[in-house]
């Protein structure tokens, strides 16, 4: 299970960073979403991975899972969801005003980006 979670975090992060570096708003939004998924899974794992263990301390239970990371992840999910929504709105607005979905400033950057495309 550790291997599964670790590789999920790794793959999500790698894909997120790759998309982020595309520097067009849609891939960037997707990239940030993947990065925030990776972060959430990672945060969840900081309380150590425990299967079938309740987040409550009870004298009959030998094993219990750490409730704090779960609370942190909930907060992080809410915040990243709100931020993504805001980013989408701003990106749409920026696209409709400037007719260009490039995240970078300035003309030279968008010119090279166009050359990159087949």
């Amino acid at each position: 299970m550790e291997f599964l979670v670790a590789s999920a975090v790794g793959v999500l992060t790698a894909a997120g960073v790759y998309l982020l570096l595309r520097a067009h708003t849609f891939p960037v939004v997707l990239g940030l979403t993947l990065l925030s998924y990776a972060t959430n899974i990672y945060l969840f794992a900081t309380g150590r991975l425990a299967v079938n263990a309740p987040p409550l301390i009870d004298e009959h239970l030998a094993r219990y899972s750490d409730p704090l990371p779960q609370a942190l992840v909930l907060t992080a999910i809410v915040i990243s969801f709100g931020m993504t929504a805001l980013l989408v709105v701003m990106a749409l607005r920026s696209w409709s005003v400037s007719g260009d979905d490039h995240v970078d400033d300035g003309e030279p950057a968008s010119a090279t980006a166009r050359e990159d495309r087949p």
Partner: peptide, 23 residues
Amino acid sequence: LKAGVQYVVMNLVGSTLFLLAVG
């Protein structure tokens, strides 16, 4: 707006790093 989108993306990446560090 263009500068704003850039600013938001920068800071969202920063927030992700913050969470990783806290974790």
